[in-house]
Each structure stands twice: as C-alpha cells, then as structure tokens.
Design a protein around this nucleic acid. Structure first.
Lengths: 131, 131
DNA sequence: CTCATACTTGCATGATGACACAAGTGTACA
DNA sequence: TGTACACTTGTGTCATCATGCAAGTATGAG
C-alpha cells in the first residue's frame, strides 16, 4: 500500500533546512553519537552476538578498558535506547535491544529513499538537476 | 529465498567478541562519527531534502557556522561516503549519496536481526536465557 | 554485624574535535 | 595580467570526552 505523499522538493539548501520532514527527527544525533565510539560499539556487538542479558563484569572481559569505563558506556547505551538495564540482586544485567535498533534503521532508510523520490525530473523550477 | 546460516550463538560476551561476524564490519564507527554532529547532520539532511548537488556557500547559508567549518564538515561527510564532491569550474558541488546510506542501514538492520535469530531456545549449553 | 561482591560515582588528565579568523590556492573573466 | 570569486588549509582556543584510579553505594552471604 502506497501512502506516499509527493511533496515538492526544496529548491535550495536554505529552503530545505526550513522544510521540516520526518528525516530531521530520524537523523538522531544522540543515537549516532552513542554508536560513534569503538568501545561502545564493541560492547553493543557483544551483547547482540551473545543474545542475552549480561553483567557489567562479564562485558568488561571483552574489552581492554577499566570496569568503571564499561559501566559508564553501558549507561550511555541504555540512555540512547540501544540496550536495557535491569537490576537482579546485586548484579546489573544489560540486554540488547537489537530489534528496536533494526526498526529505527529501516525507518530511516525508508525516509531517505522517500526524500530522494519526492523530486521528479522537471520539478523545482528547474533547480533540481538530478541526473 | 532464505540463505540463513544458523550459527551457534556465543555463550559469553568474551566468546562473542572473538567470534567474527558481518555485524562487526557493518557497525562502522567512522560512519556513525560522521553522523554524530548536529552541523554535519543538518548539512546532510539539507542535501538529501534538496536532492541535487549544492555548492559550499549555498550549504553554508543553512547553518550558522563559518564557511570554513562547513567546508571541513563536507569533506568529512565525503570521506565517510555519505556525499560525493565534484569540482565544476571554480565551484565545488556536493551531492547526497542517500541511496548508499539507505542500503548500508538496511544491511545493518538485516544483520542485527540475523544475529538475534541465530540462537534457538535450548542452544548454547543453557547459557542463552532469552525470554 | 561484617565482609565480599558488583557496580557506580567523583575527580584529574590527556586527547580529540568544533569553531573562528586569517592566509593560501585555484579558476574565471575582463 | 590583474582582480573577484569560491573554496581550502593553517593556527590557536575552548569545550567535550574517554580513560584510570580511588572512593562510595547497594546487595547477598555467613
């Protein structure tokens, strides 16, 4: 089912900046910042590949930094909605939210494609010179 | 067509870190770093929403930082494969590579899902406690 | 109550990065 | 050849961040 709304594409970057689109919300800087550190990505990959909730100490064993650093990184990943922390007794268990991330990435991909398709040859008063 | 290969899921994060998967390559830190700055995201969004190649000065008009800063940001986005620069006379034209980005995001989403599906209940010597 | 376990938080430090301004490079045009 | 235009690159500054170590908190066991 196509619920596509064809919007005239912005003729200039300045106009593009003003025209609000779902893309602006989906290009979430805080999400990408969370994924922009090697240690954090390693932790997230471990959790996804492991497929279960893991303790902080357990996760610290898979990267070379201090346990306190791992603790902070996991807290940040949780704040970004990439993992979920739950306290079990004296242990903290972090579980991957891979499904949520995959869904967000797919939504973003769809919106990018939708933006690219919004402009047809000849539109935008000739300002659009797609080849 | 399912070409899914069922791999035993890593029982511990440490084992997970050792077991190489396409996920490790797809979780590209340099890509996410490029997307982890508000000015860069704004420039990229402008280009995608505009749908055509734009000059540096034109793009600088849509954000509040100096032209030199915009120039550097665009160079970085190009290095990350998010946009493509081409010199036209004395003008530099940067074009969005939205399709490439969308494809990368979709690949990553698929791999995340594949990792999550690799483990079946009862596998991993009982170490996998998915609920 | 005491102690060990499992984290979290405070703090100092070194590295990275975003920025503005100034100077340099390359191209078109007169 | 000179000048304007469109960027790019050099440099210094300020803020943020990743890290290690030390101290603090919370929970379970004895």
């Amino acid at each position: 089912m196509m619920t596509q709304v064809y919007t005239r594409m912005a003729a200039t970057p300045k106009r593009a900046a003003r025209s609000k689109r779902p893309l602006d919300r989906m290009l979430d800087v805080s999400l990408f910042r969370a994924l922009g550190d090697p240690t954090r990505v390693r932790l997230l990959a471990c959790l996804i590949k492991c497929g279960r909730a893991c303790g902080v100490g357990e996760l610290a064993a898979c990267c070379s930094v201090d346990l306190s650093v791992v603790s902070r990184h996991l807290a940040m990943l949780a704040r970004a909605g990439l993992i979920k922390g739950e306290k079990k007794g004296r242990e903290m268990r972090y579980a991957p939210l891979g499904g949520d991330l995959a869904a967000r990435l797919r939504e973003l991909a769809a919106e990018i494609d939708a933006c690219g398709a919004a402009c047809e040859p000849g539109c935008c008063e000739g300002a659009c010179e797609k080849k």
